[in-house]
Amino acid sequence: MRALISADELLADLVRDPRTVVLVDVQWSLTTAAGPPGRDRYAAAHLPGAHHVDLDAELAGPPGRGGRHPLPQAHSVAAAAQRCGADNDSRIVVYDQGPSFGAARAWWVLRYFGATDVRVLDGGLAAWRAAGGTVTSQLPEPGAGSFEAHAGGLPLVDAAGAAEVARQGILLDARAVERFRGEIEPIDPVAGHIPGAVSAPTTENLRPDDRFLGVAELRELFSRKGIPSAAPMGTVAAYCGSGVTAAHEVLALHEVGIEAALYAGSWSEWITDPSRPVATGD
């Protein structure tokens, strides 16, 4: 099943029957320098009927030794999905303001905890507007979904698993290449990367308008990273700073038929143990 849906496709689905789609707004920014917080963005403009889910509070647990965005508790995910009106078999469409970083995290978390049909609006709110979709500031009433959260719906690795994939398969580092090399580190206290990882900046997955590359282009991109088109499950994983943009990498790999694992703790967890090695450079 594809993970992406175009704005035109979503518009057509909503015209046919808006009741068949649960819309989830995950507008989000990592830093205040990137603009207003996601909830403020949502309050100003969102798809009609969409409910907002807070990435930091509902799609992640409290920061600590598990990283800056560790996995949330199952009950938090269930409560958020129910408030949006979702059941486990609902057709859920998640979106953010454009590049799909927050939306990809929502896609991964919802799928991991038991949602069977989750799509990411390719290009987000910007693509929706460009396709003629309307927006609103009106807040919908809370939904009453029956979603039950059960972990294990998608592949997940811990620090030891990520190190093993780096040795035996392909571990992709989704951060900017400067952070991978250890030349800069604007967020975490230690610079560098997991030894054996391959640099694969998430921004390479996107067109200038923040829509994903086509399947053929993504397949070529990942081929250049050393990933075969039929990579067996368990041989590819992705990490980033805190497990958000790495979900974007996993989504892009899913689009070309590769089911990669997510190292949810990512770099921000890796460096909490000083015995874990750190590499710099290419």
Score class of each variant (00 low, 15 high):
181 R>W: 00
185 E>Y: 04
195 P>K: 06
198 V>K: 09
193 H>F: 09
214 G>A: 03
189 P>S: 05
206 L>W: 01
186 P>H: 05
205 N>A: 13
161 G>Q: 10
211 R>G: 12
199 S>V: 11
168 Q>W: 00
176 A>V: 10
204 E>G: 14
171 L>Y: 08
169 G>K: 08
192 G>K: 09
169 G>R: 09
208 P>I: 04
199 S>T: 10
171 L>E: 06
205 N>R: 01
185 E>Q: 12
157 V>A: 09
184 I>T: 15
205 N>K: 01
173 D>G: 11
167 R>Q: 15
212 F>W: 12
157 V>I: 14
182 G>R: 08
203 T>M: 13
204 E>M: 13
164 E>I: 00
210 D>F: 12
206 L>E: 10
175 R>V: 04
202 T>E: 00
215 V>I: 15
156 L>S: 08
212 F>C: 08
183 E>F: 04
174 A>I: 04
154 L>G: 02
166 A>K: 08
195 P>W: 07
194 I>W: 01
215 V>G: 00
207 R>T: 11
164 E>A: 15
175 R>E: 01
193 H>V: 03
177 V>G: 00
201 P>Y: 02
189 P>Y: 07
192 G>V: 11
163 A>Q: 13
166 A>W: 05
199 S>Y: 04
173 D>N: 14
185 E>A: 09
175 R>C: 07
206 L>R: 11
194 I>H: 05
206 L>S: 06
209 D>I: 12
189 P>I: 11
190 V>H: 03
154 L>K: 13
179 R>Y: 00
173 D>H: 07
192 G>F: 05
165 V>Q: 09
172 L>C: 01
162 A>H: 07
177 V>Q: 13
158 D>R: 08
209 D>F: 12
158 D>Y: 11
192 G>C: 12
166 A>F: 02
193 H>Y: 08
207 R>L: 15
181 R>E: 15
167 R>M: 04
200 A>L: 08
154 L>N: 03
163 A>E: 14
193 H>R: 06
185 E>S: 02
180 F>R: 04
171 L>D: 10
196 G>T: 04
163 A>C: 00
200 A>N: 10
